[in-house]
Design a protein around this nucleic acid. Structure first.
Lengths: 98, 98
DNA sequence: TGAATATATGAACATCTTTTCATATGTATT
DNA sequence: AATACATATGAAAAGATGTTCATATATTCA
């Protein structure tokens, strides 16, 4: 049934956009566009505490928008999805065109 | 200061994506892509009560994503933003490509 | 092994969001 | 004017979310 399929897709799309709907998460994603970064680096860039960042990184990881790698004690996060940049960029375009 | 400007923009972008991050709202927007629709029509399409739909329409209107017109007792809502379709479409693409 | 550092996690708290219910407002019809 | 219908709105209830705090886990280095 096609209507049902649409409904399910839209539900998933809402879940996807949830990742971009919080300023902490979108700022995390934004600061990963150019480089991978460690948790503490992100925390200091956003001027927030490490635990808050870790919690948000977990959500982003569950949504498969970021991935990580360990190097010694440090864990580096980076984008894991080609669409992230486009989605954010489209949002920025929208805001700038107002 | 450019960093500050970025931060503010990203905050606004998060606000924008909030509209698309709830399944009720994204389904409302989606069902307005083809046609304008009355509040009760939307409510019955989504199988939700009229008040819930009205409350969500108010949020979408405040964000300038929908507009409305009155015809007698009926109020018709329609999209008020060219980007809405593109944003939803990009989300759907992302989901379908997983 | 023990101390130091980086990150993750669970629980608690505060805040925000969504829905429902009751009712108000606006319009048309008799 | 009274009634019926469509929508909006405020308040309350229920649920979801984000942050902090304390602490656990993993790794390195002395």
């Amino acid at each position: 049934m096609n209507k049902k399929k649409n409904e399910n897709t839209l539900f998933d799309v809402a879940e996807l956009f949830k990742n971009f709907s919080d300023s902490t998460r979108i700022r995390i994603l934004y600061c990963l566009i150019e480089n991978e970064r460690s948790v503490s680096e992100i925390a200091s860039l956003l001027n927030m505490n490490q635990s808050a960042i870790s919690h948000q990184l977990r959500l982003l990881k569950n949504s498969k928008l970021v991935k990580n790698r360990r190097d010694g004690k440090t864990i580096y996060y980076s984008l894991d999805d080609d669409h992230v940049y486009n989605i954010i960029y489209q949002g920025i375009e929208h805001i700038n065109e107002r």
